[in-house]
Lab assay of single mutants.
Amino acid sequence: MAAGGDHGSPDSYRSPLASRYASPEMCFVFSDRYKFRTWRQLWLWLAEAEQTLGLPITDEQIQEMKSNLENIDFKMAAEEEKRLRHDVMAHVHTFGHCCPKAAGIIHLGATSCYVGDNTDLIILRNALDLLLPKLARVISRLADFAKERASLPTLGFTHFQPAQLTTVGKRCCLWIQDLCMDLQNLKRVRDDLRFRGVKGTTGTQASFLQLFEGDDHKVEQLDKMVTEKAGFKRAFIITGQTYTRKVDIEVLSVLASLGASVHKICTDIRLLANLKEMEEPFEKQQIGSSAMPYKRNPMRSERCCSLARHLMTLVMDPLQTASVQWFERTLDDSANRRICLAEAFLTADTILNTLQNISEGLVVYPKVIERRIRQELPFMATENIIMAMVKAGGSRQDCHEKIRVLSQQAASVVKQEGGDNDLIERIQVDAYFSPIHSQLDHLLDPSSFTGRASQQVQRFLEEEVYPLLKPYESVMKVKAELCL
């Protein structure tokens, strides 16, 4: 049975990233139509530049190519590739079939990587351009969430054990800070992308030097003109047959890092959902379990974690691919890159769409948070109580021993009897502590235990987050809708 299948058929496997999760716009960027249309555009740009620099290419040939950029006979191309065992030459023939007058000058002087690699770089750039505003929107939604809850005390956790208090907004800023680093890295790697350009079979530009009869300047002009037509500021000066596969490492490393950030955020949300302090959106008709109707599973956060793990592992592909590119190139890269580049971007696209949807509907339960604080705060307040007693004339050592005994009794009630923490009640009825009984409410005010959390939130948002989001103001209103 021949390899390949009808990918629109229910009898043929289709990647869930495309069929179930990723956005239509990201799927289109990695589609065959987008790819092969870009090949034709690159052939047109090459012909236009070659004509401008004096090669015998007519206006009629150029116009014929322009008129057929979208006229792609995919069936013919597939048949040609089956016959020739070469995808680029299959599309040269297919393009030439609908451009008979231009057929002889299509791909003039070029090698397969002229269309293959340059198209990949265009796709990487455009895919990054799709991700950047999506990530900015996630940051914006979380920034709104953090600002609104900047002063809401909550129990902090280290080692997932109760620690000092923080605020809900401050905790959210930990998430935002990681995503801001990801946004900066995505922008950097996007701006650092260079075009492969017009380089020939081993990167020496020998074929173009021959076409222009040894004119170095025209060869350099050709490279520059096509690079500018493709919208790049610069091209690699040095290439082998391909652009260095280190570029793929750079791009997928940034995406993998984004995956790590999203995994951490969504894990926190899942843990908070278990504590009943916070939940992701839950639709009115949504079913959490087929057997347990009360369940409210954090399905979206779980999906993000599941896909983020996949995204983090994909960076190993370009690392290994770059390491086995012998001399000017081997074909070890080809099949692998067809999979890992598309999957990385479709996965990143999915987790950003999902995280935006989550961040637009996060639900906080202040009463649950308050109750958990009441359970733990008495123990945390013991040092403040000791200091207040010393100020009232008591002995630190005597007070410490009193607190120690009462704390152990209260802990026994919590752990052995399943009761509430009654340390404060014990202190309130103990005559030894009568000098500070009137101060206990103040000493137990949760806001006095959150330090500068709310001020940190305000400063972080104003100095770091809002300036970073400013270039994306025009796209901030787009909502994230999930079908599944």
Rank of each mutant, 00 (worst) to 15 (best):
A22T: 14
M299Q: 10
A256D: 01
S334C: 01
K199T: 04
F433P: 06
S67K: 14
W45A: 11
C305Y: 11
V405A: 01
N185F: 05
I62D: 01
L443H: 00
G200C: 00
L17W: 14
S448D: 14
L142F: 07
A308F: 05
A388K: 04
C99Y: 01
V368R: 11
N357Y: 15
M225W: 15
S334D: 05
D59L: 05
G288T: 06
F36E: 10
E79I: 10
D144S: 06
Y365G: 15
C173K: 02
V414D: 00
L311S: 11
T202K: 01
L482D: 09
Q458M: 08
N384Q: 12
D248E: 10
D349H: 04
T38D: 03
K35H: 15
V414W: 12
P100T: 09
A163N: 14
P471Y: 04
E417N: 15
R196V: 04
L440P: 13
K66P: 02
T267R: 06
A453W: 09
Y13D: 00
K218D: 04
S12L: 07
D215Y: 12
A344Q: 01
F212I: 00
I106M: 03
V315G: 08
T166W: 03
T382N: 14
D445R: 13
L152S: 00
K246S: 09
Y294R: 13
A453S: 12
K35C: 14
K147N: 00
D192R: 10
L252G: 08
P298H: 09
G5E: 09
P133N: 10
P24M: 12
L108C: 10
H263Y: 11
R459M: 15
L468N: 10
A342R: 11
K477L: 13
L130R: 07
L362W: 15
Q428R: 04
Q439F: 05
A308C: 09
A260P: 08
V88G: 06
S112Y: 02
T239W: 10
D11P: 02
G4H: 11
M292G: 10
L423H: 12
K187C: 09
M476P: 14
S207H: 00
E64G: 08
N71Q: 13
Q325P: 03
W39I: 04
F327K: 02
S253A: 07
V247W: 11
L352M: 13
I72C: 03
R83F: 03
C172I: 02
H400K: 11
Q320F: 12
